[in-house]
Design a protein around this nucleic acid. Structure first.
Length: 559
RNA sequence: AGCGGGGUGGGGCAGCCUGGUAGCCCGCCGGGCUCAUAACCCGGAGGUCGGUGGUUCAAAUCCACCCCCCGCUACCA
């Protein structure tokens, strides 16, 4: 089976925070799972770098947008690397392959007759010489009198607004008074695809409930044409006749990155023909990891675009959407510095600790909350004590009592029984992963560690070693092989630690694929053994974070 | 306002779709073990599932209404 695994493209006007990491991490765990199962996987994402906010950020910094995103893209790529995200291609929307693909793709839809043009009136800032997105117009709310209402909605009374409703409208960038100007835009005829989309969604059983119900209700309410173009300078030039000076709206181009990134991947491998095999193959499945705010783009607009292109592309098989992550009960906020940013996170703790806790609280059924107390408790009690200690007690026992060599022993019935139970747990881990219940999968994984601790405890090999050597041998071989199987499953959640464990266990290469996870090995010489994890302390972490911010040790702390 | 999600022992969550005397982790109390990072293992106390009404032999689980929390509403990305 071929799989395209993708995560939403982060918008890189700033360093991403932990909320963004949820999707990136989830997709990585899933991609690693597919590979461990032996599937053929292409795992892609990239930096979303066009659009107004980045243009403005660049102006603020006195550099060009390209300079800004060059820097941010390499910074963010590096962060994802350090988090162990196993992308086959983490690219960017400035990639020539992407730009060319987007232009050709939209020309094709245009020629297929799914795009029309329309004149609209929009506010324009004569000072910044640009049309202003609704969000970038500020003024007094005509309903409640709030003076800092945005052009799309008043944050005070919650009413939806048009920018022209605002009393005393001002440009959010420079404060000048905007003027109304006529402009022409190109629209994608989304309503035309309503029936097909409805059928597609209804027949797509594995879509999560939140994605399905939200999408169907939007179709029910009636879809609207979506504008494709913007009057921005920073973006991909719209290819339509008469659209000179316009660019493609970031969202309408970034989703196509899922396609272009795969194309680019195979071009780099010098196997361009495999792109078609993947994206147009009958046995290809694609899965997208996104937050719930992105659902309509992935269940409606993206599939409709693929349909409209008549290019034979596979429609999304699954859109694994999560709810939101809150930080100590509040929304992440750059301005108020509520949250933790990815570069700060890595300066605080090793990547695997974050991977563990973020998957542990993955917001699968409802909004989840990051809390220091909870994180510290989970890392100390479960990651360190339950898992870390099992590994260490088994390996150090072999070190001290067996000269670091796993004996060659016949497994007795009880040992066989334990491994059989472990296999059943492994089966449940895989079931959960198959259904994209990553959190449950991780919790089942911890069950393996509990099983190991129980086994080691009741078998008391420290006693047998003096009185009943063969029984102790069996305990040790079974425990060692449990760890070996665990390393395979651990590898998808915590790759760095799993690889380190594998090396300590004296094994070569990397943790085995699932099919070989329970192949029994003996007579292995361990390498140097040391604890895989350590406990953390909330106060120390918070103090360290303060320090990182005060000293501006990482980029996000300096922004 | 409309739409969507949620309200389960002290804390964090699962179960609800496919109704049948409530499950997991932490914490708490008691016990065991000493190989291990004061780690591990066993047992126990503690909830009637936001409220009201209804369907049913039976409801956390289905239906109706109500209360509270959160998010979204498509030219922010």
């Amino acid at each position: 089976m071929r799989w395209i695994v993708a995560s939403a493209w982060p918008y890189i006007n700033a360093v991403p925070h932990l909320g963004t990491l949820i999707q990136v991490l989830s997709s990585d765990v899933y991609a690693r799972y597919r590979r461990k199962k032996g599937d053929s996987v292409v795992f892609v994402s990239g930096s979303d770098e066009h659009g107004t906010p980045i243009e403005i950020e660049a102006i603020r910094k006195g550099i060009s947008p390209k300079e800004l995103t060059d820097k941010m893209h390499s910074y963010v790529s590096d962060l994802f690397n350090r988090f162990g995200i196993s992308y086959d291609n983490y690219t960017r929307t400035e990639s020539p392959t992407h730009v060319k693909f987007v232009q050709e793709f939209y020309m094709r839809i245009y020629e297929n007759g799914h795009i029309f043009e329309k004149e609209t009136e929009q506010l324009y800032c004569p000072n910044d010489k640009m049309f202003l997105p609704d969000r970038f117009v500020i003024g007094t709310c005509p309903y409640c009198g709030y003076e800092k209402a945005h052009g799309d909605q008043c944050d005070k009374c919650g009413r939806l607004l048009n920018p022209t409703d605002l009393i005393n409208p001002r440009c959010a960038i420079c404060g000048a008074e905007p003027e109304l100007r006529r402009t022409k835009h190109w629209f994608f005829d989304l309503p035309k695809f309503s029936d097909k989309l409805k059928e597609y969604i209804e027949s797509n059983e594995q879509l999560p409930d939140n994605a399905r119900s939200m999408s169907l209700s939007m179709i029910e309410d009636g879809l609207k044409p979506r504008s494709i173009t913007r009057d921005n300078k920073w973006g991909i030039p719209a290819p339509f006749p008469g659209a000179e000076g316009k660019t493609i709206y970031v969202w309408m181009e970034a989703v196509l990155g899922y396609v272009s990134a795969v194309k680019e991947h195979f071009e780099r491998l010098d196997k361009p023909e495999e792109f078609d095999e993947f994206w147009k193959g009958k046995d290809t499945k694609s899965i997208y990891f996104i937050g719930k705010d992105n659902i309509p783009f992935h269940t409606l607009i993206f599939p409709a675009l693929l349909m409209a292109s008549e290019g034979g592309y596979v429609l999304p098989y699954n859109v694994a959407s999560t709810e939101f992550l809150l930080f100590e009960g509040e929304k992440f906020s750059k301005r108020e510095r509520i949250g933790i940013w990815l570069d700060e996170a890595l300066a605080l703790l090793p990547a695997d600790y974050w991977r563990f806790y973020m998957i542990y609280i993955r917001p699968e059924t409802k909004d989840a909350n990051f809390s220091w107390d909870d994180m510290v408790a989970k890392i100390n009690d479960e990651l360190n004590d339950t898992l870390g200690n099992l590994i260490h007690r088994v390996l150090s026992f072999i070190k001290s009592r067996y000269n670091g060599i796993v004996p060659n022993a016949q497994l007795d019935e009880e040992s066989e029984e334990m491994l059989k139970e472990a296999k059943e747990i492994a089966g449940r881990i895989e079931d959960n992963l198959e259904r994209v219940k990553l959190r449950d999968a991780l919790k089942e994984f911890l069950e393996m560690a509990r099983l190991g601790n129980r086994f080691f405890n009741s078998r008391e090999p420290w006693r047998d070693i003096k009185e009943n050597k063969p029984r102790a041998d069996s305990t040790v071989v079974a425990s060692f092989n449990l760890l070996k199987a665990m390393a395979s499953y651990m590898h998808i959640f915590m790759p760095f630690s799993a690889e380190k464990l594998w090396r300590m266990m004296g094994l070569d290469g990397e943790p085995a694929p699932f099919s070989d996870a329970f192949n029994i090995v003996t007579e292995i010489q361990l390498r140097e053994v040391e604890p895989l994890f350590h406990k953390v302390n909330k106060e120390e972490l918070q103090e360290r974070l303060e320090e990182i911010r005060e000293k501006g040790e990482v980029l996000s702390a300096r922004e």
